[in-house]
Simulated assay, not measured.
Amino acid sequence: MKPKNMGQINFFTEMSEHQISAQEFFGNVLLESIKRNFGLKKIVIFFFDVQGKFLSLINSEDTKKNDTKHPYKEFVLIDIIRHIIFQDAVRDKLTYFDVTPRIYKSTDIISKSDYNKSSYVEFLEKNFNAHYSLTVPFGINAYIQVSFFKSYDEGDFSEEETEELKKIYVYIANSYKNFKKYEQAKIIANIQNEIIARGEKAYLITDDFMHILSYNELAKDYLKDIFGEAVTEQINSEIPCYWLPFLLGDDMSNDEKDIKTRIIKNCIFKIYTYNQTYSNGIVDKYHWITISQKIPIKKEFSSSEDKLTKTEERIVELLHKGLTYKEISNELVVSYHTVKKHIQNIYTKCGVNSRFELYKWIEERE
């Protein structure tokens, strides 16, 4: 293994250009770039969920598909290397943004006296034509694992090769970190557009590991009223929030259509799920949370002039079904601004300030 002098620069350049249009980072393009720039040919990328369940793999010698039916699906149950990697990652709370080298050499984990006759070596030889491995993990709870293989004739990874692979780990980890930041910026923008379309005023966006990725000042003011001034120290994408588990609860659904509601003090929290799904089987979960103040709801109209028109009644019905302003304008064949004006009138007549309060008004009226 002899990494080229320009390998690092070329690799970063290729990955930076790739991230602009790529849907996924760990795939065929990455494999080809590693082979081309660092001279490593026998590579397998394994994919797991955050609980450690095997999802699929890509073999550098057959990069046309993610193999979900590979014999490794059964072998993972006794794969001591994977077990230790997962255990360490959970303990250390490994995420997308860790770039410190994590190297797992098979002959360092399985004793020399047992190695050649171990089930691990038997599996490598039968399925990958390899005898030695060196594995590096990435992502949440090490749900992505890149293994480099060598045959018996090639010999085990030397100290020099291991040091080079530590450097390569850093190159890949930093490129992946940049990719995730770029990807998350796009996801946050998409979610913010959805929030605006729904007419919500206070919001925050989180990942599934208790990091707040985005918020606005009104949401922060509401949170300070509930959790105190110290909440501002927790609004940081690099630090998990101690109060988010309390807010999200432990019954969050995987279904994007499922909406959870929490009422804390005088605030109403509506929690939505956003799933980013990849071809390798991994699903990254994000949550977006809207906040509104709970106010007394007017059950009756003060005069006949305050009653909803037929058009407004129809809009209330469509809002209750979850349609956005844009979808309502398409349904009624009117402009977006006309719908917005109708909804402002509906809120005034019903004495509400948000869609959730309107739902409560409908329920109490019924």
Rank of each mutant, 00 (worst) to 15 (best):
T309I: 01
N5W: 11
M6V: 12
T324P: 07
I235W: 07
E229I: 07
V50N: 03
R102I: 05
D306G: 05
S237E: 15
D221P: 01
K310D: 10
S292W: 01
H70V: 06
I289E: 04
I85S: 04
I80W: 07
Y152A: 09
R198N: 10
I289Y: 02
T290I: 09
G39D: 04
V50W: 00
N129R: 09
Q8I: 15
H18F: 12
F47P: 01
L358M: 12
K117E: 14
E74H: 08
R36Y: 10
Y143S: 12
D49G: 03
H83N: 15
P3S: 09
S111M: 08
K186E: 11
V333E: 10
V231N: 05
F179R: 12
I295E: 15
D255A: 09
D225V: 00
N141S: 14
F227E: 01
Q51M: 06
K64M: 08
D258Q: 04
Y176I: 04
N129C: 07
R262S: 08
I264A: 03
I81F: 12
N116V: 05
S118D: 12
F209Q: 13
Q87G: 04
K65N: 14
S175C: 14
N5V: 15
E160F: 11
K180Q: 14
L247P: 08
A130W: 02
S113C: 01
V90F: 06
F209I: 11
K35E: 15
K167S: 08
K35D: 09
